Computed example of a mutant assay.
Amino acid sequence: MTAHRIAPEVMTFYASTIDESTRLSSTADGRLEMLRTQELLRRHLPPAPARILDVGGGPGTHARWLIEDGYEVHLVDPVSRHVDQAQRVDGCVAELGDARGLTAEKESYDVVLLLGPLYHLLERADRDQALAEAYRVLRPGGLVAAAGINRYASLFEHTAFAHLHRERMQESIGNILRTQMHDGKKAFTAAYFHSGAQLLEEVTAAGFDAQVFGIEGPTWAMLKATEQYTGDSLIDTPLFQSALAAARMAEPYPELLAASSHLLAVGRR
């Protein structure tokens, strides 16, 4: 375990506020994020077996299907609750740790996943350190996949929840749009919100040859709004399938990156 300090808002949020183990399966937009992350990773991953370091891997949600696909997965997360959950995933080795100070040896992994750390590190220096660590532990030619939350995600989400008629909510979301940060004092935890260009610049500055994808595409908030007001699950409905198709169709158009909830940078060392 390193001496790096994790924001207390992040630790509290994941330790006791939200159950991360169900986030990508309990709602239509969560399921959309899961399916799109899977298909983007499977498109770029080396053939199994290969060694994957899942940094900030939470309760092992992605580790589970990666292991089923034949990969060797070692998971690192700063939240004890997550490590305990991940250790119950058959075949997953999990340890407490920090993205900015990995215990892995130099050039020891084929793939490093950063599907959470970058958006919970508010300072550029900390994000740079996490990416430098990913570079260090990757073999030459290895793959990094780093996720970011889109700068405009909160605007779309709170429109879907019909919150923006409230002046105080407009002020709160306006502050996120201006600063690209959420302080974690209410609702969601401390987070940094990237634009696609910023995420690409950070990953390429770390030495990777990278490109950025929109994960959920332009219609994820429609799923969220419809579920909110009908109370019905939209998973596996025609509307869900249309949103999935829209995410795939949007890929060639970089201007549509700004409409996704999450962004995924994929790069090679």
Rank of each mutant, 00 (worst) to 15 (best):
L234C: 03
R100D: 04
T103H: 13
D232L: 15
A221M: 08
L122M: 10
V55C: 02
P8F: 11
G174Y: 02
Q85P: 06
A146L: 00
V203W: 00
P117R: 00
L115E: 04
R100L: 05
V112L: 03
I235N: 06
A99V: 00
P238E: 06
L177Q: 06
A15C: 04
G91D: 08
Y152E: 12
E133Y: 06
V112D: 12
A147I: 10
R268S: 05
Q85N: 15
E251F: 09
V137E: 09
V93W: 11
A7R: 10
K224Q: 15
R124W: 10
F193H: 12
Q170D: 00
G70M: 07
Y192D: 01
R166W: 01
K224S: 14
Q170W: 01
H165P: 01
M1T: 12
L96K: 02
N175G: 15
A15K: 00
G231Y: 02
G231V: 03
E227Y: 05
L113A: 04
H158T: 14
R81M: 12
P254R: 13
M249A: 15
F240C: 09
E107M: 05
G148S: 04
A191V: 06
I67C: 01
T37W: 04
A130D: 05
D98C: 06
L41Q: 05
L96Y: 00
S25K: 14
T22K: 06
E201M: 09
E72K: 13
N175M: 11
V144L: 01
A130W: 11
G231W: 01
V73K: 03
V111H: 06
G97S: 06
H194L: 05
L115R: 12
D209N: 09
R64N: 07
L131S: 03
L264P: 12
S21T: 10
L102E: 04
M249I: 15
E227P: 01
T230L: 10
Y71R: 02
N175Y: 13
D209A: 13
S233N: 07
S261V: 11
T159M: 14
H120S: 02
S108N: 07
E202Q: 04
R43H: 05
E33M: 08
G57M: 01
R124H: 14
P78I: 10
H163V: 12
G30P: 05
A7Q: 10
R139Y: 03
L96W: 02
A190G: 05
R81C: 08
Y135N: 12
L244F: 09
L131C: 06
C92L: 05
D126M: 08
A48R: 00
D19K: 02
W220Y: 06
T230H: 07
D110M: 00
H62W: 08
G231R: 00
A246M: 13
A153D: 10
D90N: 15
V266T: 06
P8N: 13
D77T: 01
A246T: 09
Y135K: 14
